[in-house]
């Protein structure tokens, strides 16, 4: 790509791209602005909003009135817990499929993928009923398990595609060097796959953090993560734009930052390796 592009053309594409980028990003930008306003100012016309006073008030109120950090903690525990548990189960499975492929491997991988496509609503009542029977409705552990299960196929797939890039000879070398299976996984495969495992964790934390079917249907006050907490704003009383904005900003900020780091892996993970 050593050719120079005319500055005029580059200027035009730059202006177009930035305009579109800002339009797409605008809703997020706008709630960031609103979150620093008082409720009274937040419903004024956009111009008046921009020129009104900036304040941190809403952030304080959100925490004070609704114990925001409880829900934040729930989100962290559910997202991280389900992902780490999933990785723990998926690493050995992905190792098997990547390095000891059998005629059935392909079928098993496809079948795992198909479980991901099971529409949640189709099994809503059974899960709901099981949760009541087991006494884990509105509990963090219940959600950790469910989100682990719905993301397990993606985790296995992602790890599988990363593992396949590790030359099998290295694992064979470890075996020749006297490594047991445990040592092979622990000292050779895992350290080599750290970048892949990290991206898998990152993407799945994002997916679990934003999951909004099971979290809405299986939690109430106690274990509700941020998705469900924010949904409670759908029947608001009085003025709430600034508070909703503040709560939203806090809910999406951590994931937005993680998401920007995982752009590349996102493509690979969400397309099951079909697009790299």
């Amino acid at each position: 790509m050593a050719r120079t592009v005319s500055t005029r053309r580059k200027t035009l594409t730059t202006i177009a791209a930035w305009t579109i980028g800002i339009v797409i990003f605008f809703p997020i930008l706008w709630i960031i602005v609103l979150s620093f306003k008082t409720e009274g100012d937040a419903i004024k016309t956009p111009l008046e909003v921009l020129t009104s006073l900036w304040t941190f008030e809403s952030y304080a109120v959100v925490q004070e009135r609704s114990d925001y950090f409880k829900h934040f903690t729930n989100s962290v525990i559910i997202a991280l817990g389900s992902t780490l548990l999933g990785v723990l189960v998926a690493v050995p499975a992905a190792w098997s499929m990547a390095f000891v492929p059998s005629p059935r491997t392909r079928g098993i991988l496809m079948w795992m993928l198909s479980t991901k496509m099971l529409p949640a609503v189709g099994v809503l009542y059974p899960i709901y009923l099981l949760f009541i029977q087991l006494g884990i409705l509105d509990s963090r552990i219940g959600l950790v398990v469910v989100l682990m299960l719905i993301n397990l196929p993606i985790i296995v797939w992602m790890l599988y595609t990363y593992f396949r890039e590790i030359p099998g000879e290295i694992l064979e070398a470890a075996r020749m060097d006297g490594a047991t299976l445990r040592a092979e996984l622990l000292y050779v495969l895992t350290p080599m796959a750290i970048p892949g495992i990290a991206s898998t964790v990152l993407l799945n934390v994002i997916l679990a953090w934003n999951e909004a079917f099971w979290t809405l249907n299986l939690t109430a006050a106690k274990a509700a993560p941020l998705t469900a907490f924010i949904a409670s704003y759908s029947s608001p009383e009085g003025l709430f734009y600034a508070k909703l904005s503040a709560a939203s900003v806090m809910a999406i900020a951590p994931i937005l930052i993680m998401g920007w780091f995982s752009q590349k892996q996102l493509v690979r993970g969400l397309t099951f390796g079909a697009v790299k």
């Binding site: 580059k10 930035w18 990003f25 809703p27 997020i28 909703l244 998401g259």
Partner: peptide, 27 residues
Amino acid sequence: QPIWGQGVVRILVIAPFFVMPTVSGLV
């Protein structure tokens, strides 16, 4: 295409995907 600040534009464009569905619905 070649753009000044391509990385930043990319970030702006993909951001909505990371917004949780309940937030984007309500916002």
